[in-house]
C-alpha cells in the first residue's frame, strides 16, 4: 500500500496511524514515570522523532514533571 502511494503521492494513512499510536504509547510511558515520581502534571512537553534503523523510528517524548498545589 505504501509503495503504491509512493508512485501517486499523497497521505500514507497507515503510517500516520502507526506513528500516532507509537507516540501515544511514549506519552503514556512518560505519564506513568511522572506518576511514579509523585508528580501531578508534566509541563514543557516536547516530541522528538529519530529514525533508528531502516523501517523503524523512535518516538521520544520528554517534559518536566511537577507537583502543583
Amino acid at each position: 500500500m505504501a509503495s503504491l502511494k509512493n508512485i501517486v503521492g499523497g497521505e500514507l494513512k497507515g503510517y500516520t496511524e502507526l506513528l500516532q499510536d507509537a507516540r501515544q504509547e511514549a506519552l503514556n510511558r512518560m505519564i506513568d514515570q511522572a506518576k511514579q515520581l509523585g508528580a501531578n502534571a508534566v509541563v514543557n512537553v516536547r516530541f522528538s522523532t529519530s529514525s533508528v534503523a531502516q523501517g523503524a523510528a523512535e518516538l521520544y517524548v520528554y517534559g518536566t514533571a511537577v507537583r502543583l498545589g
Binding site: R23, F47, T49, S50, Q54
Partner: peptide, 23 residues
Amino acid sequence: RVETSTIGNAANSKGAVGSVEAL
C-alpha cells in the same frame, strides 16, 4: 512546535518509502 522527520530511508534512495512526517 512543528517537527519534521523522514520515515524509513532517505527519500531519494531506491526502493525506500520517500515520505515525510510532520507533527
